[in-house]
């Protein structure tokens, strides 16, 4: 098979963009939290896996379709995130980044291992959406679950973007992100906004987890791989930059698709890490460099 045929390249590109959309959904939540409270949440991947297991439970116990599990998982994860912020994350807002890294590292260890304790390390999947569509005009095979997951991710990410841009709460979130003190003076309940933000980010992670179940097999340990990809994405796209996370996600999806197409899937797993380290090293001050001038 000649890999350089336009049809195959297109196939890879579409597949990459669809996977990238899922990454983008996950990474923009992480980035939102970072933007609003300067907390790097290492447990973000585990929140995604929580959503995945919720969808898996609903499917295997009640036969609920993942698309129907989606709103349930988002609500549950929102509540979980809201209270996690209140009980734990709020204590580390304003502390140095290393402290937040270590605390969320501890949180991710707890979540992952409780997951292992309850669900074991077996890989699972939800075989709800299956099959492929053949688009004759483009000579393109589209995997149904990938297409659905990609489209749902794009819609949700766009929805959150719209929410941040136009709703009252969204504007308050952006205000806190830009100037927490000013926002506080303007009468915004900053503590509450942080809880909403973390809830929102957790809901996005949960949604990504639900969609994940239809395209990948997962275990409680899968979250760690994804959180690394998220860092690659937000470092590429700019930390705290919502649109940047979207572009970074699509870029990573594309890069992985082509590497797995031309080399192997295992090397594709390393792409995110290599990209991450490369970007970090080419911009050694990090994309936060400007904060050091103060």
């Amino acid at each position: 098979m000649d890999l350089l045929q336009p049809a195959i390249l297109l196939q890879l590109a579409i597949g990459g963009l669809l996977a990238g959309a899922l990454y983008a959904l996950l990474a923009s939540g992480l980035n939102l939290v970072f933007g609003v409270m300067r907390v790097i949440n290492l447990a973000h991947g585990e929140l995604m896996i929580a959503g995945a297991f919720l969808a898996w439970l609903l499917y295997s116990l009640l036969g609920l379709h993942p698309l129907l599990a989606l709103p349930v998982a988002m609500v549950v994860l929102y509540i979980l995130g809201f209270y996690l912020q209140r009980l734990l994350i709020e204590r580390i807002v304003g502390r140095d980044e290393l402290t937040s890294l270590l605390v969320t590292y501890g949180l991710s260890i707890i979540l992952m291992n409780v997951g292992l304790l309850v669900f074991s390390a077996d890989f699972r999947a939800v075989p709800a959406l299956q099959g492929a569509v053949y688009l004759e005009d483009l000579d393109l095979v589209l995997s149904k679950p990938r297409a659905v997951a990609g489209i749902v991710s794009i819609v949700l990410t766009a929805g959150v973007y719209w929410f941040l841009k136009h709703s009252r709460t969204g504007k308050a979130i952006r205000a806190v992100s830009e100037h927490a003190e000013v926002a506080m003076i303007c009468g915004i309940d900053v503590t509450r906004i942080r809880m909403v933000t973390f809830g929102l980010a957790a809901a996005m992670a949960g949604a990504a987890g639900v969609m994940l179940t239809t395209i990948y097999s997962f275990s409680p340990e899968t979250g760690a791989d994804f959180v690394l990809k998220c860092f690659a994405i937000i470092v590429i796209g700019g930390m705290g930059n919502f649109v940047g996370a979207l572009l970074g996600g699509l870029l990573l999806g594309l890069a992985e698709a082509f590497v797995s197409g031309f080399l192997s899937t295992q090397w594709a797993e390393a792409v995110a890490y290599l990209l991450l380290v490369l970007v970090l090293i080419l911009r050694p001050a990090g994309l936060l460099g400007k904060a050091d001038a103060a």
């Binding site: 790097i40 890294l101 991450l276 380290v277 970090l280 090293i281 001050a285 990090g286 936060l288």
Partner: peptide, 10 residues
Amino acid sequence: RLHGPYFAIA
């Protein structure tokens, strides 16, 4: 050469 948190992530 990376600042603390970035080193940790790398």
